[in-house]
Simulated scan of single mutants.
Amino acid sequence: MFARVSQIAGVLAVAGALATPVAAKDKLVINSYGGAYEQIHRKLVIEPFMKKYDVDVQVITAYSADALAQLRAQKAAPQFDVIHFSGGQEVVAAREGLISAIKAEELSNGKDLYPFATEGLSRGEGPVHAVAAIGLLYNKDKAPKKPARWADLWDPAYKDHIVLTDLSNSYGLLGFLMLNKVKGGDIKNPDPGFDAVKGLLGSSVVVSTSPEMQQNFAQNDAWIAPYAQDYAYTLRKAGLPIEFVQGAEGTPAVYLTANLVANRPNQDLAKKFIDFSLSPEVQAGWATELRYSPTNKATKLDDTVAKEVVYGEQAVSGLMRFDPVAVDAARASLVERWKKLIAR
């Protein structure tokens, strides 16, 4: 009788254990940008974070403009916990209450970030976790000399070997705004830039996409182009002798931000994810894999990588940012005017 009671008790215990629900893992929903970027994002951030904190991270591919549109549409019940932007949309998202403010002291890596990376926190924006600097790409084997300034684009030494990028490309737009600035203009007054570019059109090629940029350096004897440091690395991997130079007048850049979405229940976990993205180890990985510049001053890079990105106090001091709200407001008119200019 005792044995039977024990057997029954054992069966009930097993049944009870089977009936007990297994606790679900915490979950985050984030966006990434697809392609090679998303592959590296998973390798450096997403998968290590899931392993460290034993959580699930769902990734939805959504580029910045689409991500902002989704946040707006889902404002009452957003699906994202962390949203990444690369086009300045965090400024708009913060103003519209779509993202929540983060205090620097809530991030263990906050104290080590360069000032430009935390400047937006006071406005409710997320921190900058990586930078794609815009400068001058040049063919070190063919160009008669190494450029040093944006103004060198008008040096006769480079005539007939210049590549310009269409303004529908973010890198091209920032490059144009820098040329306009060098010539004395600003976002509200792009005339100096367009006049200066008009003078270059007779001795340059205009491209719209990155593959076209590569084709011109590989096949069409291009020597110099305003473009991004990460793409200089892409060209070198393709076997081309291309180097990146910061123009002495300043270095505009694409600032990649990680933002805390408002009205979500697991913001503490989301902050940990953002903080993880800011660690020196992760940022060294971005620099090594894609040649993005780190925003954490504690990041250590080997000499080869350090020479190919904007790295260190002195180099970072040259970074500048055009007002993303003003740029977004002017974008359509600038692109339309550009199209008319190059169609002549």
Rank of each mutant, 00 (worst) to 15 (best):
A232L: 06
Q246S: 14
Y171H: 13
D191G: 01
S210C: 00
S204K: 11
A151K: 15
A225H: 14
A196C: 09
A151I: 04
G239M: 07
I134P: 00
L173K: 11
G172Y: 05
R149I: 00
L167A: 09
Q246L: 10
V206I: 15
G247D: 02
G239C: 09
P147N: 03
L235I: 02
R236A: 09
L177A: 15
N180Y: 06
Y171W: 08
V197K: 08
W150G: 15
P241T: 11
A148W: 01
A222T: 05
D155Q: 07
A222H: 07
I162Y: 04
G193D: 02
A225R: 08
G199Y: 01
D152A: 12
N189R: 14
L173F: 11
V245W: 03
A218D: 07
L174D: 03
I162R: 14
W154S: 15
L235H: 03
F244I: 06
S170G: 11
K181G: 01
G184K: 11
P144S: 11
N139Y: 01
T234P: 00
P192D: 04
R236V: 10
A222D: 01
N169Q: 04
N139V: 02
P211I: 11
Q214H: 10
V197P: 06
K142R: 15
K198V: 00
G202E: 03
E243M: 08
E243G: 01
S168V: 12
G202T: 13
Q246R: 14
M213H: 12
A238R: 05
N180T: 04
H161R: 15
P147K: 10
N216Y: 10
V182N: 09
G239L: 12
Y158G: 09
Y233W: 08
P192K: 14
F176I: 12
W223Q: 13
F194L: 05
K146E: 14
F244M: 02
A222I: 05
P211W: 07
K140H: 10
P156K: 14
A232T: 04
V182H: 08
G247W: 03
I242H: 06
R149Y: 03
K183F: 01
A225W: 03
F176K: 12
V207H: 07
T209S: 15
G247L: 12
L235M: 15
M178W: 00
R236W: 00
Y231N: 07
I187H: 04
V163A: 11
L177G: 06
L200Q: 08
D155A: 13
W154A: 13
K188V: 01
P190K: 13
W154Y: 10
K146N: 03
Y171M: 05
G185S: 02
A143S: 11
P144A: 12
N220S: 15
S203L: 02
N189I: 11
Y138M: 07
K146F: 02
I162T: 05
P241A: 13
I162F: 06
V245Y: 03
Q229F: 01
L167F: 14
L164W: 07
Y138I: 09
R236G: 03
V245R: 15
S210F: 14
P241S: 05
P192L: 08
A151W: 02
L173P: 02
L200I: 12
S204G: 13
S208C: 00
V207F: 11
P156Q: 09
S168H: 05
Q229N: 13
P192Q: 03
Y233H: 09
V245A: 10
A148M: 11
